[in-house]
Design a protein around this nucleic acid. Structure first.
Lengths: 326, 326
DNA sequence: GTGAAAGCGCTAACAT
DNA sequence: ATGTTAGCGCTTTCAC
């Protein structure tokens, strides 16, 4: 930067200003500075800037798993919008563990990030304390609830479960089941199941849960269907943890010659791209995957510019997509 | 850090040493320092450290798409191993564009990263120059080839294509097809297709390409199958860009009553989890997704400790998984 | 609108 | 093995 200043015949403070708030520098100097930057191929040292200003154009984000397409679509949308404005994403995955989340938050904080984005509402005490002390924007996403740390962008998983139960009932199903995987860690799926069961029993419909310990994968869905058929042969409609599991169930039904939806109705969650192509087409719930990322980016960018007027809690809703399977 | 030093009754240099190379500090002081750190809940400022040492414990990584499970599994494996050693991942996605890659590399470099990991071998001139000048470890991944920028960890996509063609031939197929999507951007898929066609013609077998402009998704696979049947009715074995497309083709076959593999053999790429569950089970090629991440982490960590003895090019191979579809 | 000067919190010679 | 000292490259008062 000293080189740039020398070449442009100004002081480093002016170069710094020209970079950060171009409008308060006279047009003439700005041009000279821009030329110097160009000629020297100057790349600012962000660590020096960060040290001096005690903040950085970095946003830390933690998702349970990078491989989960739900979250990765949110991350991609968020990252794209932030990158346009010069912010970098530091990505980590907690593997659904609050301890790993705690460690990640601590290491993010050491970078004086501009903001931190967390998945869900379940955090350790220490994480909460550190976040509060950091006094930076904090977003919790993919859920809803009371008293967010700061901002909250998501939708109600309980309502998702209720909507699916109502849908099944309206189609004449009489014995419902929720098939979940790793529910001790995936609290959002647990919540969907709870809403589903609550709505079923509120409507006087029979409902059971089949809970598998494994992670929610295609094979787990197939297993879940097998267990369901074994243990609860009377069930005529099943709501799965997500589309991936529902796909496994679809395959297993095919193998066993179970007619979907005639003998058994199936509903997934996520509206992943195969849901609109499978045989039969998969009835599912579409969460606002990209929208969550976009809205968080917008809220954050507004906050970075000093605009704190946005809502603390943003409910982006969801959509039940009725197709052939249920 | 000054507070810690004061409380422990030592100088800041000693605290700094205790943090970076604990073994060169006497056990007694180390204990006192650790206690002070604990009591003050001291969190080091990484930007200050980075500025002073002109490097940071940060690794920049660029993948074409975060949502692609191939790469996200690599990212997850890499991130996990690096996080254990105190390194943070800065993640970005290029959307298969070298210009976006260029911009990302530039912004990573402003953080004095410990290393940079790129997907593929196709980069802009400026990116190459900057990377060379940065004098940090650079890994190109998911491909193989001559003269890497620095390190190269992957496998041969051309060989993948050849292996699939040989496999189809050995099963008696006589008219082969490669069905690809967005081949102008996905150079790895293009390479697989080229290997496939080359091997087919080398063996005297007829082979054609069906190329779609859309991104390789489930729906694209279904479309690809439709076009294949229309334009090349005699084809009896098709190799798809990846498993996602192959799944779409499987569904489309089901809809059209095409017997797989009797009438048409299908092979995918990726061995995504549904491949082992679909009906029929999907024959595919398994790339070393996690292994790539792990080996890069190992190579990088070795380099960070000054060990430059590792190979510049690491061929991790692949595996053809024969199941029912082909 | 621009410049001078004082750090930001740490690391790395160097000296002891 | 430990302390002293001089920055790292930028931002940000504070004068002008």
């Amino acid at each position: 930067m000293a080189d740039v200043a020398r070449l442009a015949g100004v002081s480093t403070s002016t170069v710094s200003r020209a970079l950060r708030q171009p409008d308060i520098v006279s047009p003439e100097l700005r041009t000279r500075i821009d030329e110097a930057i160009e000629r020297l191929a100057y790349v600012p040292n962000l660590m020096a800037g960060g040290l001096a200003s005690a903040r950085s154009r970095t946003v830390g984000i933690i998702v349970p798993s990078i491989m989960n397409s739900f979250f990765s679509e949110t991350v991609e949308a968020l990252g794209e919008r932030l990158a346009d404005r010069g912010y970098q994403l530091m990505l980590g995955h907690s593997g659904y563990s609050t301890e790993r989340e705690e460690a990640l938050v601590a290491s993010y904080l050491a970078w004086s990030p501009a903001a931190i984005v967390l998945t869900g509402r379940h955090h350790s005490k220490l994480t909460l304390r550190r976040l509060l002390e950091a006094e930076i924007p904090v977003v919790e996403m993919w859920e809803l609830g009371e008293r967010p740390i700061d901002m909250l962008v998501g939708f109600s998983h309980r309502e998702v479960g209720r909507a699916v139960a109502r849908h099944f009932r309206s189609r004449g199903a009489t014995r419902l089941a929720f098939v979940g995987a790793a529910l001790d860690r995936d609290l959002r799926a647990l919540e969907r199941g709870a809403g589903f069961l609550a709505e079923a029993s509120a409507g006087g419909t029979d409902a059971v849960t089949v809970s598998l310990a494994e992670r929610p994968q295609v094979a787990t869905g197939a297993q879940g269907l097998a267990r369901l058929l074994d243990e609860q042969p009377g069930v005529d409609a099943a709501f799965f943890s997500n589309d991936v599991m529902a796909l496994g169930a679809l395959f297993e039904c095919r193998r066993r010659g179970i007619a979907v939806p005639e003998r058994l109705r199936l509903c997934g969650f996520g509206d992943l791209d195969f849901a609109a192509e499978s045989v039969p087409l998969l009835t599912t719930v579409r969460p606002p995957r990209r929208e969550i990322g976009r809205r968080i980016a917008d809220a954050l960018l507004a906050r970075f510019e000093g605009d704190a007027s946005g809502p603390a809690v943003l409910d982006l809703g969801f959509e039940l997509i009725e197709r052939e399977s249920g």
